[in-house]
Computed example of a mutant assay.
Amino acid sequence: MNKYVNQMKQAVMEYQKTARRIADQEARNRERLSEEYARAENNALFTEMREACDKAYNQIQAVLDTVSGGLGKAVELRGKDVTEDVQLLSGAFDLSKTQLQSLVAKYRNNPTMMNAIAKYAKANGIHGVQIPTEEDKLEAYKVFAEGARSMIRSITTDPYIRLDYLEGWGEVPVSSERLVDLVGTGNEIK
């Protein structure tokens, strides 16, 4: 699982845990305390809930900020990441779009090889090879962030809402294969 999507997931899970604890306490207050005292205690809990919600939203935004800043940096190309498949990109072979796309899938988490594949596609006028750009990746992270925010809104409305998909969120098949592929592991972001 992508480490940044996992951070968003953890923010949602922590918020739901807090929201449930607060909802339980509010119910106990209504049962055990007079109406006046219950209202005063529950007002304090409402403030705590609002703060927990804000904290979760801020954690998600912090992840987006980290990703955005990290994607904007030049990727370090390293000779040790060059594989023998670079020989296919040397010009001795006429590779098709399908063959290049296969190499993209194979080297998605290898910036050095992705650079070589992109250079080959450009030099040989091969269009339509789906090489993820920084913008594509950032948009994928934004989709995950909006999903996390949506879950937080749902939890705010009903702390006991069943988010059965949350366990596998950020992984195929719960999340879109395309989005999961675009964000990769997150290890390339510094």
Score class of each variant (00 low, 15 high):
Glu171Met: 03
Met114Val: 14
Ala145Thr: 11
Glu146Arg: 12
Lys106Pro: 15
Leu103Lys: 02
Met151Phe: 04
Phe144Pro: 10
Leu138Phe: 09
Ala118Gln: 05
Thr98Val: 07
Gly147His: 02
Pro159Arg: 02
Gly125Tyr: 14
Ile155Pro: 02
Ala118Met: 15
His127Trp: 10
Leu95Val: 09
Met113Arg: 05
Tyr107Gly: 13
Gln99Ala: 11
Gly91Thr: 03
Lys80Phe: 05
Ile131Ala: 06
Lys137Ala: 08
Gln99Leu: 10
Leu89Asp: 02
Ile155Met: 12
Leu95Asn: 04
Ile152Met: 02
Ile155Lys: 11
Ala116Asp: 04
Phe93Val: 09
Lys137Cys: 13
Trp169Arg: 02
Val86Trp: 02
Thr83Ser: 09
Leu166Pro: 03
Asp136Ile: 06
Ala116Arg: 14
Ala116Phe: 14
Met114Ile: 03
Asp164Cys: 00
Gly168Thr: 06
Ala145Trp: 11
Asp94Trp: 14
Gln99Cys: 06
Ala105Pro: 14
Val174His: 08
Thr156Lys: 09
Ala121Pro: 08
Gly170Thr: 04
Ala148Pro: 05
Arg108Thr: 07
Asn115Trp: 06
Ala121Val: 09
Leu103Thr: 01
Ala148Leu: 09
Glu146Leu: 11
Leu166Thr: 04
Ser154Trp: 09
Ala118Lys: 13
Val143Thr: 15
Leu88Lys: 05
Pro111Glu: 08
Val86Arg: 12
Ala121Gln: 05
Phe93Leu: 14
Thr133Ser: 13
Ile117Lys: 01
Tyr141Glu: 09
Leu163Ala: 13
Leu95Pro: 04
Ser175Val: 02
Lys142Trp: 01
Phe144Tyr: 03
Pro159Asp: 04
Gly168Val: 03
Thr98Met: 13
Val82Asn: 15
Asn110Pro: 03
Lys122Tyr: 15
Pro173Phe: 07
Lys119Ala: 10
Asp164Met: 02
Ile117Phe: 00
Asp85Met: 04
Ser175Tyr: 04
Glu146Ser: 12
Thr133Pro: 04
Lys142Asp: 13
Tyr165Arg: 15
Arg78Gln: 09
